[in-house]
Simulated assay, not measured.
Amino acid sequence: MTTNILFAAKAERWTTYEQPLTKALTEAGIAFDLRTEFAPDQVDYIVYAPNSDVQDFSPYTRLRAVLNLWAGVEDVVGNTTLTVPLTRMVDHGLTQGMIEWVMGHTLRYHLGIDGHMNGQDGMWRNVAPPLAQDRKVTVLGLGALGAAVAQALAGLGFDVSGWSRSAKDIDGILCLHGTEGLRSALSEAEIVVLLLPNTPATANTLNAQTLAQLPSGACIINPGRGPLIDDDALLAALDSGQIAHATLDVFRIEPLPAEHPYWAHPQVTVTPHIASETRASTASQVIAENIRRDLNGEPLLHIVDRFLGY
């Protein structure tokens, strides 16, 4: 029997995904029909981007699951018409890209690269950085991405702690949770990496109070979600010297408006949401594997908890 798979995303995504998805589904041994249009009552699975035209799932009466193309699900998780399982994208290509981006910016701070690049004035500043083992890095958010980043940083020798809303156990990482755990995680963090999901409970995780809990001169790296940071509080902390520098890849409004003060601030690095992209080749393998599993009565991977929002 043929499995009907609807690709519901922007047209340019279809151009990127049609061949990799076809290849991955074929290699998974699935008899399928993959299209951008079906009669709703004929669809078995939806490969989905939350900015697609599909917003009402109620006509899809035979639907078995919605497979999100993005790691973030905040724009679909609250849709009351979606009653079948929703999976989020946990893609090894995306994970590797995130590891590389975070490692690069962590090492940039750790080694003082900005100072050397900006200090070509004839002055011999013979100050070596500490070893990684003496640099404390905290990762906020210990889901799939956060855990992978924390372990990669620890693999380089950094003194890594991690914090999450619920208890986690990750080999080689000091894992903290809860309100007091957050205070402890921040209290010694020289570099903070934010990889929490975007939920009402995580909004403004870094605010005036929590920024003040960091050691003076700490650096911030945010490739997670824009709303994790109170922008006004961060700007004030940068101006006061409490925070030495912030590298920000995600924002409440994207593209970041040209008039936003982050652009001109000398202690802020803006990158245009490039920390990691879902790669069509590897994401297609994840989607095909989940469909194969479901068709064979195996549990889906990466199912979203509707209550937690991720």
Rank of each mutant, 00 (worst) to 15 (best):
Q242P: 09
V192M: 09
P227T: 01
L228T: 12
P227M: 00
I191R: 01
G141M: 10
L153F: 03
D169P: 00
G112M: 06
H177Y: 13
A147K: 00
M117E: 15
D230I: 06
H177P: 01
D230W: 02
Q209G: 01
V160G: 06
H110D: 14
A237P: 08
F158D: 04
D159T: 09
S166Q: 13
M123C: 11
I173Y: 07
Q133V: 14
L248I: 12
R165A: 06
T138G: 08
D169K: 10
V137S: 05
P130G: 00
R225H: 05
Y109L: 13
T202F: 03
L214T: 08
L176C: 10
N207I: 13
G226K: 07
R135N: 13
A189K: 03
K168P: 08
D114W: 02
P130H: 11
A237K: 12
T205Q: 09
G217A: 13
T247H: 11
R125L: 14
R183H: 14
G112Y: 03
H177S: 15
N118M: 14
V137H: 06
Q151L: 09
C219T: 06
P223K: 06
G146Q: 07
L211G: 02
E190I: 11
F251M: 11
G181N: 09
H177N: 15
G119E: 04
T202D: 01
A132Y: 12
S164C: 04
A144S: 15
L186N: 03
A132N: 12
A218Q: 13
L211E: 03
E188P: 00
S216P: 02
A132V: 10
Q133W: 11
S161W: 00
L156Y: 15
A201D: 13
T210W: 05
A201F: 05
I113D: 00
A152H: 04
A208S: 13
D232E: 15
V250T: 15
I173L: 08
L228Q: 10
S216V: 15
L194E: 06
R135T: 15
G141K: 09
L235W: 02
I229Y: 07
S240L: 10
P197K: 00
F158A: 14
A218R: 11
D230T: 03
D231K: 02
L234C: 08
R125M: 13
A148R: 05
P223V: 06
G178Y: 13
A237Y: 08
S187C: 14
A212T: 13
L182E: 04
D230V: 07
T205A: 10
N198W: 04
S166H: 14
D239F: 03
R165H: 01
R165E: 05
D230E: 05
K136L: 04
L238G: 02
Q151A: 06
N126L: 14
L211M: 10
A154R: 07
W163Q: 07
I229Q: 09
T210V: 10
H116Q: 14
A203C: 09
V149R: 01
A185R: 07
A246F: 04
L206Q: 07
I243A: 01
V139I: 15
S216Y: 03
S240M: 09
L140N: 14
R183P: 00
A147Q: 01
T199D: 07
E188Q: 15
Q213I: 01
L131P: 00
V127E: 09
P197E: 06
A150Q: 09
A144E: 10
L235T: 12
Q209L: 12
G115I: 07
K136P: 04
H245C: 11
D239M: 05
G112D: 08
E188F: 00
L235K: 03
A201C: 04
L206W: 02
H245D: 12
